[in-house]
Design a protein around this nucleic acid. Sequence first.
DNA 1: CGCCATATTGAATCTGCTCAACCTTGGTGG
DNA 2: CCACCAAGGTTGAGCAGATTCAATATGGCG
Lengths: 242, 242
Amino acid sequence: MDAHKKHTGECEAPTVCKACEARHGGICAALTASQLVELNKHSTRRKVEPGNEVIGQGERVGSYSNILNGVVKLSKMMADGRQQIVGLQFAPDFLGRPFLSESSVTAEAATETEICSFPRPLVDRMVSEARDLERKLHSQSLKELDEARDWMLTLGRKTAQEKVASFLYLIATHIDPEKSGNTTTFDLPLSRADIADFLGLTIETVSRQMTKLRKDGIIIIENNRHVIVPDARRLRYAAGND
Amino acid sequence: MDAHKKHTGECEAPTVCKACEARHGGICAALTASQLVELNKHSTRRKVEPGNEVIGQGERVGSYSNILNGVVKLSKMMADGRQQIVGLQFAPDFLGRPFLSESSVTAEAATETEICSFPRPLVDRMVSEARDLERKLHSQSLKELDEARDWMLTLGRKTAQEKVASFLYLIATHIDPEKSGNTTTFDLPLSRADIADFLGLTIETVSRQMTKLRKDGIIIIENNRHVIVPDARRLRYAAGND
DNA sequence: CGCCATATTGAATCTGCTCAACCTTGGTGG
DNA sequence: CCACCAAGGTTGAGCAGATTCAATATGGCG
């Protein structure tokens, strides 16, 4: 399918993009080969260590990014230090806030993460030229909105037990886990402290509920971060999703 | 400004649209006069009584709407009946979920509300024709996303006291209130039960915190629904916003 | 005026928080 | 090689804020 494009003369997708995850599911999928080439000239690819900021809350943002791999957490902080994670982003999600030059959230790598950044003005221009690109961004915004609203139900109405189960279920369904039969296996991308900030709980409560889920046989934990789910339906049920 | 358009031959904006709130701030502001005329042919304007559904959760949706006046609440419900309001929409907001035919939330009138509905296919076609329209919708989605994330902080990390103050502050800043000097006055568009569902609290807790805010002199309440805020900064502070 | 839905108040209970101690793990240097 | 240390995670006891359940008050409307 890519083959015939290679010979249309004009140009072809840059080599670095070919193996890139964002080239397929991400926003780059909405670009033509020649747009990709142009974007690529001004893009920088870099690694971000866990805990390092990509964008700061209230900061002026000069660039947009794609997540190539890893997990990025979006969080908000109150003046007295209370913190809430308001979203998790996975590859190949787009990172940035079109139409506004200032970010209302902090974006920070939760795991080792690789991102590909572009200058804002360039992308803004491309958005105004390429219909598909705007549509893609619009569509991702709506997906994030749906997710945010789902999470509001979790934050507002679920018990600590259900919150922790909801989190595990979310990760299990987003981080393409090892599956064999009914059993699902994955590594948690977040520390207990981050999980607490995501769920609006304390680390102690998260820990206790994890222990409870473990004792109930709904999950098996190895080395704190490694989780085995023998039966995803039981976890789903514990999460209060129907 | 409208005057010269009246004489461009082709057509002019339909009479009903002229006085319409959505014609200015709403999505109709992104339409040309001729598009308005076409849209108007297939649009229906109607009143919705408080408590009546506009869209049901999981329902197939055949139309989009504009809110002309009133307040609409978006909510989610769990299987066991627990409910969470995930957003409030005010005139001239757009109601609907582009790209998806099924709604993940229930939209219900909180107050007496007037809406203007359009067939989905017609709007979808216009969106693919008019750049400005897609941009406008995209922009509203992002606004809603920002609001949802702000509210996640409230749900996850604020105390009952701060939650109630946050709600009052939200209404005070959205429902264009009477202002005279520092004093702000408005009517609550939601019942105590709705407020509780919005804040992830019980009605009793909402009531107690209202009483507390009243006793602290931050608000004055008349007839349950009518609220007077002598000093908006004190309310803002009680809400934990900086 | 009296009724019904809505809101307030009170007392007992419970879920999740606070504070403190302890355990595990992985890295470092004697 | 192993003792030590620091960071992250778990566990326990007591406490506090929010819920539950029940009784009472208010106010909109026929």
